[in-house]
Structure formats: C-alpha cells, structure tokens
Amino acid sequence: SEEELIEKAEKLRKEFEFIWNGIRFIIRENADEIRRFEELLKE
C-alpha cells in the first residue's frame, strides 16, 4: 500500500541521514590528516 511505501521511504531517509552524518563526522575529524595527505600527493 501507499502508506507502507511512505513508511519504508521515511525509514530509508533516516538511515541515510544517519550514515551521512557519520561520514561527515569522520571527514570533519580527519580533515587535517586528509589535507596533509593531499599535500603529500602534490609533491
């Protein structure tokens, strides 16, 4: 039914948001290391 689809979509959206926030947190935490690594690659 349509309601089930909406519920599934909402659940997926929440899971995606949770994963995305996790990725963003990891990137933020490691931003300095990532930048340093990029500098090494440029040399």
Rank of each mutant, 00 (worst) to 15 (best):
S1H: 09
S1M: 10
S1G: 05
S1P: 06
S1A: 09
S1D: 07
S1K: 03
E2T: 09
E2N: 11
E2C: 14
E2M: 14
E2G: 11
E2I: 13
E2R: 13
E2V: 13
E3D: 10
E3C: 15
E3Q: 10
E3M: 13
E3L: 10
E3P: 05
E3A: 11
E4H: 06
E4R: 07
E4C: 14
E4Y: 05
L5V: 07
L5F: 09
L5W: 13
L5T: 08
L5I: 09
L5E: 04
L5C: 10
L5M: 06
L5D: 03
L5H: 04
I6P: 09
I6G: 02
E7Q: 09
E7D: 04
E7P: 05
E7V: 08
E7R: 06
E7M: 05
E7C: 14
K8Y: 12
K8R: 07
K8G: 06
K8D: 07
K8I: 10
K8A: 11
A9W: 15
A9C: 15
A9F: 13
A9R: 02
A9M: 10
A9Q: 04
E10V: 06
E10T: 09
E10W: 13
E10K: 06
E10G: 03
K11S: 11
K11C: 15
K11D: 11
K11G: 10
K11W: 11
K11E: 08
L12T: 02
L12C: 14
L12H: 04
L12K: 04
L12E: 03
R13E: 09
R13F: 13
R13P: 09
R13I: 12
R13T: 07
K14F: 11
K14D: 07
K14S: 08
K14P: 03
K14N: 08
K14V: 12
K14A: 06
E15Y: 14
E15C: 15
E15S: 06
E15P: 06
E15N: 05
E15K: 13
E15M: 15
E15A: 14
F16M: 02
F16N: 00
F16L: 09
F16H: 01
F16Q: 01
F16W: 12
F16K: 01
F16D: 01
F16S: 00
E17Y: 07
E17A: 05
E17P: 00
E17Q: 06
E17R: 05
E17C: 14
E17N: 03
F18R: 07
F18M: 04
F18Q: 02
F18E: 04
F18K: 09
I19R: 00
I19Y: 05
I19C: 14
I19F: 11
I19T: 01
I19N: 00
I19A: 00
W20R: 00
W20Q: 00
W20M: 01
W20S: 00
W20Y: 03
W20A: 01
W20V: 05
N21Y: 12
N21G: 02
N21A: 12
N21W: 11
N21E: 10
N21I: 15
G22M: 15
G22Y: 15
G22N: 08
G22V: 15
G22S: 12
G22T: 14
G22Q: 12
G22K: 10
G22C: 15
G22P: 00
I23F: 03
I23L: 06
I23E: 03
I23N: 02
I23C: 15
I23M: 00
I23T: 00
I23Y: 00
I23A: 00
I23Q: 00
R24L: 13
R24F: 14
R24M: 13
R24A: 13
R24H: 11
R24E: 13
F25T: 06
F25G: 03
F25Q: 10
F25E: 14
F25S: 02
F25L: 08
F25I: 03
I26N: 01
I26M: 08
I26W: 12
I26T: 00
I26V: 02
I26C: 14
I26E: 04
I27N: 00
I27C: 14
I27D: 01
I27F: 10
I27E: 01
I27W: 04
R28K: 07
R28W: 14
R28C: 15
E29N: 07
E29K: 03
E29Q: 12
E29R: 06
E29H: 13
N30E: 03
N30A: 14
N30D: 02
N30Q: 14
N30P: 01
N30G: 13
N30K: 06
N30M: 15
A31V: 08
A31Y: 09
A31F: 09
A31W: 13
A31H: 04
A31T: 11
D32A: 12
D32G: 05
D32N: 06
D32R: 11
E33R: 09
E33Y: 14
E33S: 12
E33F: 15
E33L: 15
E33T: 13
E33C: 15
E33V: 15
E33A: 13
E33N: 13
E33K: 10
I34M: 03
I34L: 05
I34H: 01
I34S: 01
I34G: 06
I34N: 01
I34V: 05
I34K: 04
R35I: 08
R35T: 05
R35V: 11
R35D: 06
R35A: 08
R35G: 03
R35K: 11
R36L: 11
R36F: 10
R36A: 07
R36T: 03
F37M: 03
F37C: 12
F37L: 08
E38P: 04
E38G: 02
E38T: 14
E39Y: 04
E39M: 07
E39P: 00
E39S: 06
L40P: 00
L40C: 13
L40G: 01
L40S: 02
L40Q: 02
L40A: 01
L40K: 05
L40N: 01
L40D: 01
L41W: 11
L41A: 02
L41H: 01
L41G: 01
L41V: 04
L41R: 01
K42H: 04
K42S: 09
K42W: 13
K42N: 04
K42Q: 06
K42T: 06
E43Y: 10
E43G: 09
E43W: 13
E43M: 13
E43R: 07
